[in-house]
Write a protein that binds this DNA or RNA. Structure first.
Lengths: 227, 227
DNA sequence: GATCGGCGATCTGCATACATTTGGCGTATG
DNA sequence: CATACGCCAAATGTATGCAGATCGCCGATC
């Protein structure tokens, strides 16, 4: 209830809580983030609240209009399509760099991670698949050894993960993802950077493509978390 | 009535001034950005200064260490290599989308812009080339019609342009860039997305590759603007 | 002479107070 | 009855005050 004794700075704590609530859908798009209200809620002054809101604005989660307050950003369908396009590109680079750097042990690890995806797909367990899929991608991205790339991917993931989860629910999507993962792994195994890149890009973009219908349906609603 | 009431908020103004000074090199890497000093300098309180610094931090231009103040961020060589890699990727996507969307009139416009680059190269006018080159790339990126991509490219440009200018000074670099631009235009003209993508990526990455020596030399100095 | 510990200046982090802007509501008017 | 004007409440933008933390300096001690 009343979360007190923040071991870290107030601002940092507030940022992570608000971030979480926005991404979970507790705070819906267009919801107002009132400085005073939040100040009361977190038992702090408006100053750290403002800092947190500025931070969220710069990561794109909220919109700040001068003298008009802060609202949770609503991503339009085109926003999402645009972002998935860029996201695919970055993941593609991640896979390409992975093809250069992964040891054979690490490739085995990748196969193992994809096997978990495959199991989840067999069991038709979307939640399990979603987590395993994230692990697969995270592992690969981390091995790119490009921290800038990694931070950009993580930043975008914050926005897109909710939608990725939706996409997972599409019929046969899980099976196809497993296939595509396998192709990517094969390309990496052969050290074929270019192929790894292209395959990964298509994997993520198809993901966006097949998602378009869902996104359009969502357009009239609140957002990814709406029932 | 007393003061003309700044058309924009103090913070916005401060951000753009500081941004400019950092990118121009007026403020060198590792330079301290003292809140009180800046407050005196801009005739405002510390609050808008703090907001501006937070903003600069989120765009990566400065580092804020808790209780230790704010300093101009020093980009290491690996930071730059990593960023150029990502930058190449994004520009590649820009070119790919351009290949889909550019009308033939716009392609002519691209050729014209590259001709200015060529003229500058002939005249060995690095400054002119640099500007013309930016125009060439900006025009193409803008036609991608992907605003997210565009904003990411612009964000990165802020960091990288100073280095791109350096690279321009490399012997024969200008001529080669003109050649590469031509190949990219040809690919776009043929509607060959994939080629446009790859060529642009290589164009920018080579740019990074050939720059590595320069960057390493700079490592021991202040930064791109040091004489 | 070198090193360690304590003290003080200074700065950041947060709280509070004041100023300005915005948007709503009620009233007056065409 | 619709529209426009003006006032008021509330929220944001800015200023300032206070407490805790960090760093440098100076003296004491080995």
């Amino acid at each position: 209830m009343t979360k007190v004794a923040p071991a870290v700075s107030s601002t940092a704590n507030i940022i992570s809580v608000l971030e979480d609530e926005i991404l979970n859908g507790t705070l819906a798009p267009e919801d107002r983030l009132d400085e005073q209200g939040l100040a009361r809620r977190f038992n702090v002054s408006r100053t750290p609240i403002r800092e947190a809101l500025r931070h969220l604005a710069s990561s794109g989660l909220v919109d700040i209009k001068p003298n008009q307050g802060t609202t949770v950003r609503r991503l339009t369908t085109s926003d999402l399509i645009e972002m998935f396009q860029v996201f695919g590109e970055l993941c593609g680079l991640g896979a390409q760099l992975g093809a250069r750097r992964l040891s054979s042990a690490e490739i085995d690890k990748l196969r193992a991670l994809n096997q978990v995806c495959a199991d989840a797909a067999e069991e038709d367990d979307a939640d399990k698949f979603f987590r395993a899929n994230l692990e697969f991608h995270d592992f690969l991205d981390a091995r790119s050894k490009n921290n800038y790339l990694l931070s950009e991917i993580h930043k975008m993931s914050k926005h897109l993960n909710a939608y990725r989860r939706f996409i997972t629910l599409q019929p046969r999507r899980m099976m196809r993802s497993v296939e595509e993962h396998n192709q990517i792994i094969d390309a990496i195994g052969k050290g074929d950077e270019e192929a790894a890149h292209i395959l990964m890009r298509k994997h993520v973009n198809l993901l966006a493509g097949s998602a378009t219908d869902v996104l359009i349906a969502l357009e009239n609603k609140h957002g990814p978390s709406d029932g």
